[in-house]
Design a protein around this nucleic acid. Structure first.
Lengths: 210, 210
DNA sequence: GCGCAAATTTGCGTGCGCGCAATTTTTGGA
DNA sequence: TCCAAAAATTGCGCGCACGCAAATTTGCGC
């Protein structure tokens, strides 16, 4: 129940950060302001978030990265790994958050926030590696890590694309950065052969053991 | 020739950073010291490197990341993409640098330096994406980006493993983290199917065009 | 309720990253 | 050679991240 209090503080900081950023614009939010709004000392803020952008972005990201891993583990054993991964990711990234509308608009505004948002996808690397290793029968933990890192990188790239505002002023026809699910699946597609091959290898290894 | 001067300053900073870190230990090197040793204002230091660790690590990393891309582009068209990538990476990461012996020992000492060293692999993402796109006939630049990011992530993981000191005090038999070439190839192996598939697709696309 | 141990919060000090605007250096043309 | 534009360097100031140690809170057995 001590953990509950920590999560409460964390959430308070997230929401304070987002609210202030929406009210005043991201540039006019000091770390001290966020801490004060959450009823916490400025030093404590940095025990929870290691940068100012992280807190704002976390308000919309929440625990999404670890949910992805859980969602993958929850898929029945029959489905292909590549499908489990792609479906879980699309599912979690399209799950409606409370403030998403205005918050995402805000994030696209600031380069620093855009970067932090895309970079947050890296947080899924370790949970994802565990989930993939679980599915592969953890014959080779290293393979799982590499695949997880690759998937995380693909998601990051998809998010970068998605958040990118089409260049203003060029008047050019920039590809209007399709829907998020499409971008995610497109970015993950090149990795499908690698996931399939790893799954196949794991299957062979298991059969050999039996 | 203005570019030459910039590169000279950059190198002076790198070498000064490494030399001081070796002399006093990484913790006892202020950014101001590095700047002074390189005959440059502290502010200028941050025009070249955005963190203290970056300069030290850059002394051993140098321009390795961009060389990888060049090495890939230099391979004859016949060789498989996956082989070109793996060979180029192994080649560049085993190329003997001047100070490598003591410098690498130093890097393994400090967690911050270890992280910076592994993280430096991310710098190869963009050059690598260009090189891969070139090989694939840039039919799909997005695929190249994802593959490049995946390769960079794999290299990062291999480097993390490599510089990991076996846990002291556990007395356990930690796998003694094989040779760097082996680690690199092992980390890249899971991505081979993805690289092969992308190459195959590109070949079909080209044939269709002809 | 009491008190102790563990974990968390907090204040303080230091060094750092970087935006900004002024200054110095470099470049290329007349 | 000289000058104007461009580019790099520098000083300044601010806010921030974080190590450290003291203070506070929390959890738990009695």
């Amino acid at each position: 129940m001590r953990e509950q209090k920590k999560q409460a503080t964390r959430q308070a900081l997230r929401e304070a950060a987002l609210r202030l950023a929406l009210e005043r614009g991201p540039e006019n939010v000091r770390v001290d302001d966020i801490a004060e709004a959450a009823g916490v000392s400025p030093r404590t803020y940095n025990n929870y978030f290691s940068s100012r952008e992280q807190a704002i972005v976390a308000a919309v990201t929440a625990e999404r990265e670890s949910r992805v891993a859980a969602a993958i583990a929850a898929r029945p054993d029959g489905v292909r790994l590549a499908d489990a991964v792609a479906d879980a990711i699309v599912e979690q990234y399209t799950a409606p958050g409370p403030h998403d509308g205005d918050a995402l608009l805000l994030i696209t505004t600031s380069p620093a926030l855009r970067e932090a948002y895309a970079e947050a996808a890296a947080a899924m690397e370790h949970p994802l590696a565990d989930a993939i290793a679980g599915r592969l029968g953890d014959g080779d933990g290293d393979t799982a890590r590499v695949l997880a890192a690759s998937v995380a990188a693909a998601v990051r790239i998809a998010l970068e694309r998605w958040i990118q505002r089409p260049a203003t002023g060029t008047g050019g026809l920039v590809v209007p950065s399709g829907s998020l699910p499409d971008l995610l699946r497109a970015a993950l597609a090149p990795l499908t052969p690698a996931l399939d091959a790893a799954e196949e290898r794991a299957r062979h290894a298991r059969r050999r053991d039996a």
